[in-house]
Computed example of a mutant assay.
Amino acid sequence: MSTTGIFTRVRSNYSGDEVRPLGGYLRAMGGFSGLVGLAALVGGARGARLPERFSWSDTVLVSVAVHKASRLLTKSSVAGALRAPFTRFEGSTGEGEVAESVPPSGTHRHAVGELLTCPFCSDVWLATAFTAGLVLAPRATRLVATALAAVAGSDSLHLAYDAAKSAVARASEG
């Protein structure tokens, strides 16, 4: 049996009647692995040394930055221009975020669309990039991470302010 035949059988056994873009997923994982390998090669060529351990403050900073970066990439109205070739706009969800659907085809567009609309999926890529950044360019990475963390903190304050205003309005009505 040919490789194509084996892949078709595996895909059919895995997904049944639902179209799943296994080839697109494989390409995405290959791209991710290639980028990680490239970062390792660049780090090795530059003589970068892996730290013994990362500090708690860097871990928290990167966590908040990755959260905000993934929300910006996967949900923000403005980044819709990046997602548009792989998604379809469904509507606004408030606070500058949108809902989008991924084309039902089993192509690479579907796999990329899932990556670009799922904050949990993009977190892996972004966390890897920030972690590599802490090794290869720690000052620049901390600068970008600090800005993203500040935006996340500001977002939280906006939401708390709106919630407090709504509570006051409800109390004055009752």
Rank of each mutant, 00 (worst) to 15 (best):
D162W: 14
L82P: 05
A69T: 13
P104S: 14
G91H: 01
L61V: 01
P138D: 01
A160I: 05
G113F: 05
D162N: 14
R109V: 11
V78I: 12
S77I: 10
T93W: 01
E114Y: 04
A69N: 02
K68T: 06
G153C: 10
T141S: 01
V66Y: 00
W125H: 04
R109W: 07
R83K: 08
A99T: 13
V102P: 11
T107V: 08
R142V: 13
E95P: 03
F130A: 07
A140P: 04
L148Q: 05
R109C: 05
V60I: 11
R109M: 06
T128A: 03
T117K: 11
F89D: 04
V112D: 00
Y161N: 13
F130G: 02
K68R: 15
T87I: 10
E100S: 15
S77N: 07
E114G: 15
L72Q: 09
K68C: 09
A150S: 15
F130S: 03
V78D: 03
S92T: 12
A140S: 13
V144L: 10
A79N: 09
L136Q: 01
D155M: 03
E90C: 08
P85E: 04
L73H: 04
A69M: 14
L115W: 03
A160K: 06
A127E: 06
L159R: 14
R139D: 14
A84K: 12
H110K: 12
S92C: 01
R88M: 12
V62M: 07
D162F: 11
V64Q: 01
V124L: 14
P119E: 13
S101Q: 08
S76M: 06
A163N: 11
V124I: 11
V62E: 01
L134A: 00
A81V: 15
T117G: 09
S70C: 15
R83C: 04
V66Q: 05
D123Q: 14
S156V: 12
V102S: 04
G94Q: 10
S70L: 07
G96H: 01
R71F: 07
R71K: 13
K68N: 09
S122W: 14
G113P: 09
V151M: 07
L115P: 02
V62P: 02
A149L: 06
D162Y: 11
E100N: 10
T128R: 00
L134N: 00
L61E: 00
V102T: 08
A129N: 05
L72Y: 05
A69P: 06
R83D: 05
L82T: 06
V60Q: 00
D162S: 07
V78W: 01
G91C: 06
L72F: 06
A152I: 03
E97K: 14
V144I: 14
S122M: 15
L157F: 11
A111T: 00
D123R: 14
T74M: 10
A163H: 13
S154M: 08
L126I: 15
S154A: 13
R139A: 15
P119R: 08
R88Q: 15
S70H: 02
S77Q: 12
T131R: 02
G96C: 06
V98P: 07
D123E: 13
T87A: 08
F130H: 03
S154P: 02
S105Q: 12
S63Q: 06
L159C: 01
